[in-house]
Each structure stands twice: as structure tokens, then as C-alpha cells.
């Protein structure tokens, strides 16, 4: 029995310390997945915290498989809840502010079409923002598949377990997401650091 399985068993028996050790081990992954899906640090924080509490409440339903996959399933469900809530109650600030920097955004993304304009590209600048921008333009299902497979590097089997869909569905979602991401990221290519450009990648 692996260390993770032992900790999970002790947590199921009511040992909070064991549960917290598992949380510490996977919290970074959980938060980053939530952040890439929701594109918002505060929302990702809430979703992760809710997922951890929900995991503790439902420890009895854990059947001894991969704890990481089980926890990430709760996290993605929590993110889905938040995405549905946003669709029901869309809220857009009149004076858009960048949450990270606190600066006002001159050209918010809802004011432009899908293909980024030069000023948007300049604003995004860095790779992280480019990736997040392209991920945000994907449908929810494709975004989650891309985050789990390409950003977090999980294999199809794990993703299938997390999302609860068959392997064929995962493959399909991944290649469709990649096709769109490739087109989006190419538009940022000239602004990316040299080492991330396609030409340097090829040659």
C-alpha cells in the first residue's frame, strides 16, 4: 500500500492530520487547475477551498483509487458550479480592473472579437497571459481537457477518471482544443520570448 493510500485510509478513519497531509501534497495542483479553468485567482481560491471541504465531507465515498484524480474531480466539479453560476448571473464591472495588478484595463476582452488586436497582444505580453487568453476562448469542456492534459501533463486515463468521460471523448476534446489553441497562440508568436517561438521550436 502506497503512502498516499495509507494517508487516505487514516483520513477516512477520522484522522484530520492525515487528510491535511494529502491536502498539502495536492493543493498546488488543485489551485492551478482551478485557476486555469476559471481565469481568476479569487474564484480559484474559493473553488479550491470548497473542493477541499467537500472532499473532507465525502471521504467515505473515496474507494481507494488515485487520491489525486479523486480530489481533482471534486475541484473540476467545483469549477463547473462556479462557471454555471457565472452564466446564470453574469456580472461585468463598468470600470474593468486587472485583478492581479489593480490597474484599469483599457481594452477589455469582451469589447473585441476572438482574434486579438495589436493593443491586446501588447497588453498580454507574456506567455502566461497569452496562454490564459487562448484558454479562456475555448469552450469549458475543451478548456478543462487542455488544462489537465497539456498544462498539467496528465495522461488520458487520469483525465478520463477525473472528468468521468470515456477515453475517446478525452482524445476528441484534446485534439480539438489543441487545434484552436495552436491558431490562437500563433497570433501571439511575434510577441513571445524567442525561445517560445515556433521557428525556434522547429529548428
Amino acid at each position: 500500500m502506497t503512502e498516499e493510500a495509507l494517508l487516505a485510509k487514516r483520513a477516512q478513519a477520522g484522522n484530520l492530520e492525515a487528510f491535511n497531509q494529502l491536502v498539502l501534497k495536492h493543493q498546488g495542483l488543485a489551485f492551478n487547475v482551478a485557476y486555469r479553468i476559471l481565469a481568476d485567482s479569487a474564484a480559484a481560491d474559493d473553488a479550491t477551498q470548497n473542493a477541499i471541504i467537500s472532499a473532507f465531507q465525502n471521504l467515505k465515498s473515496y474507494r481507494g483509487s488515485s487520491f489525486k484524480a479523486w480530489l481533482l474531480r471534486i475541484v473540476t466539479n467545483s469549477c463547473y458550479d462556479e462557471l454555471r453560476r457565472r452564466k446564470r448571473q453574469p456580472s461585468v464591472a463598468l470600470d474593468p480592473v486587472n485583478i492581479e495588478t489593480g490597474e484599469e484595463i483599457e481594452s477589455p476582452k469582451w469589447m473585441v472579437d476572438d482574434s486579438p488586436l495589436p493593443e491586446d497582444i501588447v497588453a498580454l505580453g507574456e506567455l502566461d497571459q497569452a496562454v490564459q487568453h487562448c484558454l479562456d476562448n475555448l469552450p469549458d469542456e475543451f478548456r478543462i481537457a487542455a488544462v489537465l492534459v497539456d498544462v498539467e501533463g496528465m495522461n488520458y486515463g487520469e483525465v478520463s477518471e477525473i472528468i468521468g468521460k470515456p477515453l475517446g471523448t478525452i482524445k476528441s476534446r484534446v485534439y480539438r482544443a489543441r487545434k484552436r489553441l495552436q491558431q490562437c497562440l500563433q497570433s501571439f508568436q511575434e510577441l513571445l520570448p524567442v525561445k517560445y517561438r515556433l521557428l525556434s521550436e522547429i529548428r
Binding site: 491536502v23 488543485a30 489551485f31 506567455l127 496562454v131 497562440l185 515556433l198
Partner: peptide, 27 residues
Amino acid sequence: LRQIQWTKSVLRKAPRRKVPHHFILTQ
């Protein structure tokens, strides 16, 4: 194939965020 390879590598190199705080549960 080159384009998809490049896309995959860019996504994989996207910087990871630090967790804002520990998510452990108190008693």
C-alpha cells in the same frame, strides 16, 4: 505536427501559480 508540438510545449511551459494560502482544515 510541428505546430501541435509547439502548442503543447508552450502550454506545458506556462508558469504555475503559487497557492495564495494553505488549504488545510482546522479542527
